[in-house]
């Protein structure tokens, strides 16, 4: 869920944008990362693990654990917690292994 006003930091974001997750249009604030914008929209399960197909979501939020991989604008397995969301961005869950080769 999105916070409107932070008790210490007040307001920070002012530009609302639209992006798409698994073809659904969602609102986000410019300056947020993709994974945080999804969490703000109630999306906790970002994808599924490749072998046992278990739910995966934000774990470290610093770009190290790779639990938040998503396909972003056609590029598979992007670390979504360190990627800023942008107007019109097309985001989808990763299922299975990334495509390799040409």
């Amino acid at each position: 869920m999105q916070m409107v006003e932070h008790p210490i930091l007040g307001r920070k974001f002012d530009q609302e944008i639209t992006f798409y997750f698994n073809e659904q249009p969602l609102k986000a604030w410019e300056g947020q990362t993709v994974s945080a914008a999804l969490l703000a929209n109630g999306v906790k399960e970002l994808g599924r693990s490749r072998k046992l197909a278990q739910a995966r979501g934000v774990y470290c939020a610093t770009g190290r654990c790779c639990s938040c991989f998503l396909t972003i604008d056609g590029l598979e397995h992007v670390i979504s917690c360190t990627t800023l969301v942008q107007e019109g961005m097309v985001v989808s869950s990763n299922v299975g292994d990334p495509k390799r080769g040409k």
Binding site: M3, I8, A36, S49, V58, Y59, C60, A61
Partner: peptide, 21 residues
């Protein structure tokens, strides 16, 4: 590994940098 389990630092980032509960 279930979504909703995260490091304390991750929760702090979401709260104070992303303004997301």
């Amino acid at each position: 590994t279930l979504p909703g389990v995260m490091t304390a630092g991750a929760a702090q980032i979401l709260l104070n940098r992303e303004f997301v509960y």
